[in-house]
């Protein structure tokens, strides 16, 4: 089966984001961008499934402007066989992303979609579930372990208070949690090879999906800043402050 891996280009997770001066978003000009960390884990899992003989081909897909090709090259350097850029300059909300991905799924007919549980920019945690709904496929969200056998995926999920295991009939959508695996690094030879792998561009406008958002960002603001605290020298002083000043113990 083919495995489709949607990946997103986001502000690198090590960068502390700054709210843009116009209050419409976060500063992204000249800021280091990378593949969303959860998507790296989802891609790693797809590559491992191919190495175990469960998958025949791993296809990375992203949605965004031409520059978003860089995350697809990274995905191919990690080991994806080929990539698809759904080209648009419009910012797409998860609902629109799910509709665009559905169009790609209908064209490519993958047996599994492996994707991150959330993007670290909008922190929505919605696209995988929405795509599964639109396809009528079962979903295994927040996965920490995946076993494939006999047309089924057994998925262990991280839930409040423990772990839950589900059996899903393929095709299915699985979203990766942090503990699913440790993603590999792309080696220099593989980065060179990735330049020659096929990267197909589809115009978002050609997929028959309305790109108009249902959710409009009115304003983006800094969260309230905490006031600077004090350094105490001894444990007794700390306990004293917590009792009499902060009154929390």
């Amino acid at each position: 089966m083919k495995v489709l891996v949607p990946v997103k280009r986001v502000v690198d997770y090590n960068i502390k984001p700054r709210v843009a001066a116009d209050g419409r978003g976060v500063e992204t000009q000249g800021v280091k961008m990378s593949m969303n960390p959860f998507d790296e884990i989802a891609l790693e899992e797809a590559l491992r499934l191919r190495e175990k003989g469960h998958a025949s081909e791993v296809i990375a897909v992203t949605i965004g402007p031409q520059v978003a090709q860089d995350v697809l090259r990274t995905a191919m350097a990690m080991g994806a066989d080929r990539a698809i850029l759904i080209s648009t300059d419009v910012d797409c909300e998860p609902r629109v992303v799910a509709n665009l991905l559905k169009a790609v799924v209908e064209k490519e007919q993958p047996g599994l979609i492996s994707m991150g549980k959330q993007a670290i920019d909008d922190d929505m945690n919605a696209t995988g579930q929405m795509l599964a709904a639109k396809l009528g496929w079962p979903q295994g969200t927040f996965a920490s372990q995946i076993d494939i056998a006999d047309g089924h995926a057994t998925v262990t999920r991280e839930v409040d208070g423990g772990t839950e295991t589900l059996a899903l009939t393929l095709p299915a959508v699985i979203t990766a949690d942090l503990r699913l695996n440790e993603p590999r690094y792309a080696s220099l030879p593989n980065i060179m090879k990735a330049r020659k792998k096929p990267l197909e561009t589809l115009e978002a406008a050609s997929l028959g999906v309305d790109l108009t958002p249902h959710l409009t960002v009115v304003k983006v603001a800094e969260p309230p800043q905490r006031t600077a605290g004090i350094i105490v020298e001894t444990v007794d002083e700390l306990v004293q402050k917590l009792k009499t000043e902060a009154k929390v113990i």
Partner: peptide, 11 residues
Amino acid sequence: IYAGNALATVQ
């Protein structure tokens, strides 16, 4: 959004 580094007002 962005790990709590910004607050978005959405409609």
